[in-house]
Structures are given as structure tokens and as C-alpha cells.
Computed example of a mutant assay.
Amino acid sequence: MKKQLLILAAAAVFASALTGCGSSAPSAPAASSAAQSSAAQSASAETPVTVKIGLTGTFNEDIWAPAAEELAAEGINLEFVQFSNFSLPNQALVNGEIDLNAFQHHAFLNNEVTSNGYAITPIGDTYIVAMNVYSNSMSSLDELKDGDQIAVPNDATNEGRALKLLESAGLLTIDPAAGASPEISDITDYKVQVKFVEMDANLVASALPDVAAAVINGNYALDSGLKADDAIFKETEYADDSYFGLIAARTEDAENPVYQRIVEAYQSQKTIDVFNDEFAGFFVPAWTL
């Protein structure tokens, strides 16, 4: 239950990828360019070094634990800095308050770079929080009838993702010009004339008793007691890396060998074991796709 509650902290970044939250977050005083991170200036870990990584949600520290233990033995000490406002970790990275961050997916970072001009570069992928289709009344989407209702998240990023998932199931066709975040108005054809019930991503699972099916983000499915194997249709294919979580560095530090080693340690079977053992398989290792 503790893991299920903690995982809610991830929801805003994957369920509201193009918007920020309003709460405050811990932050250190802005560093001068000359003092921006001794880690960023290190060419190797021959001398012990501390790398500050910005996260959102303490559950991420559990995911990072195997890598942190392995790296500590090599003289690379990871210090995790928690933020509760998803608009802050990239600013903190640019300011030199942290060395890396690992809280966002590519769609979010791309929007941040476009909107704010940040010189930030992805240096490795982390995970995808799977989005699947669930139903209390059907075992297959083939059972859908005209007029049936499907609950979907109402934010732009996740609604588009939900619609594309239903398209991959053969339920509908979306105008290709709509891009990565289509809207209901972009649907050009229906196999079955379903109706969509749009609601906040964190409420979709609660609608299951009242709709034929619901497209639910993995973090909320887990918190609601659902299992990945309960899904009647699963997200297994990704046209691009839009929803892949990532580790980000300042662009000037993207090739830092210490940072590259951190990515290598994270992208391991031990991390996959954490996904499977502690998070019921809802987290998919993005670097394997």
C-alpha cells in the first residue's frame, strides 16, 4: 500500500505532461556558472564525486537504489533532491542546483525546451508507465456495442495517448496530421460508435463500474488495486519516444563520462527487477524498446 500511495507522486508528470503544478518545492540557492557542480567538471570517478539528481516522488529513490549502491562502490555517490512542482527540476538543472534530473518524459522536455529555451539534453531513457484498457463487464474490446461509453483522461497528453491506444486496438482511426496528442475531434472513423467520457486522469479508474471500458494510466491502475494482467488491452507498441521517461543533463555536460556511467548503471536488470517486484509490472523499461 505504501508503494501504491507513493506512486501517486508520478501522476502529474505522466498524466499532465505539458503543464506544471502549483505547489512549492525544495531548492538550493542558484549556483554561479563557475561553481555549477563539481560532478559536471569531473572527467571520471577516479576521485569520489557526488552527483545530485532531481526527482519527483520518493518511490523513484527505490527504483534508483540498485544503481546507487553499485555506483557508490565506484566512488560515484548519488544525492537525490525531491521536487513537488514539476516546473522546477529543469530550471534547477539549468541553474546548476542539481546535476541531472529524472522526472519527465520526452514530450514534457521538448515542450520545456521550446517554451523556455533550456539547453537540456536527454542522456538515457528510464521507464514508461504503461497505459492499458480495463473493463468490469467485458473481456475483450470486441464486445463493445454502439453507444457504449469509454472513460479516458481529459488532459491533452494522456487523452491523445489513450486515443492512439484505442486506434492500435483497431477501434477507431485518427487523422495522421493530428500528431502525438490527437483529440476526439481528430477521429475520422469508428469501428463501433462509442462515446467518450472525459475526466481527470486520477478519476478514470473510479468510473469503471459506470462505463463499458476505461483507459487508465498504470500509476492510477496500481493505486486502485488493478493488476496489469487485468487489462483487456495493453499498451505494447510505441510509435516514438514521446512517453519514455528520461535522465536529463545540461547540454554542455551530456557527454560527461560520470553521467554516462550513471545511465549505464540505471539501465540494468536490477532496475527491471524493481519494476516487476515492487510495481507489479506497470513500469516498462523504456531502454529495452
Rank of each mutant, 00 (worst) to 15 (best):
I187W: 04
S206W: 05
S268G: 11
D230L: 08
Q260W: 05
V129F: 11
L144F: 12
V51A: 01
L166I: 13
L172M: 15
L166N: 08
R161Y: 13
S115V: 07
S224A: 15
A177V: 12
L246C: 09
A119N: 11
S37M: 06
G218H: 06
Q4F: 11
D189V: 05
L222C: 09
T236R: 07
A205L: 13
T251M: 05
L100K: 03
E74Q: 14
A72P: 03
A151D: 12
M131C: 13
A39V: 10
F233I: 08
N136G: 14
G147C: 06
Q269P: 03
N95K: 10
P122H: 08
I53Q: 00
A11Y: 09
N111R: 08
Q267H: 10
K270Y: 04
I76L: 06
N116Q: 14
A156T: 12
S27R: 13
E159Y: 06
V51I: 11
F279T: 00
L222V: 04
Y259L: 12
Q91G: 11
H106K: 10
E46W: 06
N90V: 07
S168W: 00
S87P: 00
V81Q: 03
D125N: 12
F86S: 06
A178C: 13
V274T: 06
R250Q: 07
A265V: 05
P176F: 12
L88V: 08
A178E: 11
L88H: 04
S181M: 14
I76W: 01
F275L: 12
F196R: 12
D148Q: 10
D142W: 07
L165R: 04
G160C: 11
M138Y: 03
Y118R: 08
E167Q: 15
L163W: 12
P66H: 05
Y259R: 05
I53H: 00
A207S: 15
I98R: 00
N158R: 07
L93I: 05
A169P: 06
A221W: 05
A151L: 11
I262F: 11
G20W: 05
A151C: 12
S32I: 04
V274I: 15
E167I: 04
S181C: 07
R161I: 10
A213R: 01
A11R: 00
A73M: 03
L163Y: 11
S242Y: 07
Q260V: 01
K2N: 15
F103W: 13
G170K: 09
P257E: 06
V113D: 03
F103T: 14
